[in-house]
Amino acid sequence: MKKIVILAIALLLSLATAGLVRAESRTVYVYNWTEYIPEGVIERFTEETGIKVVYTTYESNEAMYAKLKVLDSTGFDVIFPSSYFVSKMGKEGMLMPIDKSKLNNFKNLDDRQLNHSFDPANRYSVPYTWGGTGILVNPEQVGPAPEKWADLWDSRFKGTLLLQDDLREVFGMALKKLGYSLNDTDPEHIREAYEDLVKLMPSVRTFNSDSPKVPFLNEEVYAGMIWNGEAHVAMEEMDSLRFVWPAEGAILWMDCLCIPAGAKNVDEAHAFIDFLLRPDVAATMVREWGYATPNKAAMALLDEATRNDPAIFPPLSVMEKSEFQNDIGEAVTVYEQYWNKLKANQ
């Protein structure tokens, strides 16, 4: 009898130890843009929850999408696609519906930043940050700052420009210059944009969507297109840089938190998303990286100068002329054909 009791106790201790190990080894696999989370946030999340974060980065929506396609939407638990890729991936069954009952901080989001056309009722996505692509310039090197996209075609910028390494961004710029929508699906208009971009290529020094501020800070380029948050950080490090919202309108985007359909650590994914929705974390994102937040509770934590910084929060006059990127459906193949031709002749 005594032997049976000892064995039973040993079994219970073994089960308890196994449960403890499992609890201590909880992990969430995060796939995010480069330099797109405040310093120390991952460490704080692990410290408070005990969940380990395995963090990997990508340079473009296309790269993220291609990898998830190859992996059949497995391998990662949280991703950060932009608005038009949320729509695309949702339609293709690559995203898992968000369980909002597991997100205590969802209530912090501004209603005006929810229920967009790319994901009605936020079935698959939670807003993370939003912003726009405009022009960064060093007037000390190339003269007066450009006022519109069309100014970048001026010969004074020859060999000095940076373009985002992103087909939707680059073609969006050209389409806006031509007076079209950046979501245009007309093959003839896309061809026109391509031919205009060919004329711009002698001025292009590099394509960069990994960390486009770096070539500016290294003085390898003196003007070009850039996300407003990257511009904000760059201007803090180099006084001579200036950011401009182009007169034709900016390229607006919203990056979202999503869970791939094949995610294995679903509870941990929701816990990570909920942590990023905390007002203090969202406010830190604005302060450190200069991107606008959809978190209304976080806005109250920002100082007045930050809330009113036009480089972070585009003014109404800019918003009225700008567009959010949307899914362009099958027309993306036309864009890709011209994009590949453009890059091949770089």
Results as ranks from 00 to 15, higher is better:
P215N: 10
M235F: 09
K321N: 10
N108Q: 09
N326V: 06
W130K: 11
Y31W: 08
S83F: 01
A271T: 10
Y335E: 09
I312V: 15
V266A: 04
L252A: 02
S60C: 04
K343F: 01
P260H: 06
L68A: 01
Q325Y: 12
D303I: 04
P294H: 05
K102A: 08
N104H: 10
A283R: 04
A311V: 15
L13D: 02
L13Y: 01
N295P: 07
V233Q: 11
V86N: 03
N183D: 09
G75M: 10
V221Y: 07
A250V: 09
G229P: 10
K158C: 02
R242D: 05
P279Q: 06
P120I: 07
E336Y: 01
R242V: 15
V142D: 07
D239S: 15
S73R: 06
K107M: 05
L161C: 09
E35Y: 12
P139N: 11
P260S: 06
L11N: 03
A271N: 01
D110F: 02
V214C: 00
T133R: 05
N265A: 05
N228T: 09
I51Q: 02
D119T: 00
D99E: 14
M285P: 00
M89K: 04
V142E: 05
L162S: 13
D184N: 13
D210I: 12
D119P: 02
A292K: 11
G134K: 11
E336I: 03
H270S: 03
M1P: 03
P315F: 06
N265S: 08
G19L: 11
D255M: 06
E237M: 13
A121D: 14
F76L: 03
P315M: 06
Y84W: 12
A298W: 02
L257N: 06
D303H: 04
K67Y: 07
L197D: 12
L20Y: 13
Y338F: 15
A271S: 14
F313L: 04
K264E: 15
Y58S: 09
D267T: 09
K3L: 12
N115E: 09
K343N: 00
P38R: 07
W289M: 15
G50T: 10
A292D: 12
Y128V: 01
G75T: 07
V318F: 06
K67P: 00
G90E: 04
F76H: 05
D165S: 11
L15W: 12
M285L: 14
Y124P: 03
L178H: 04
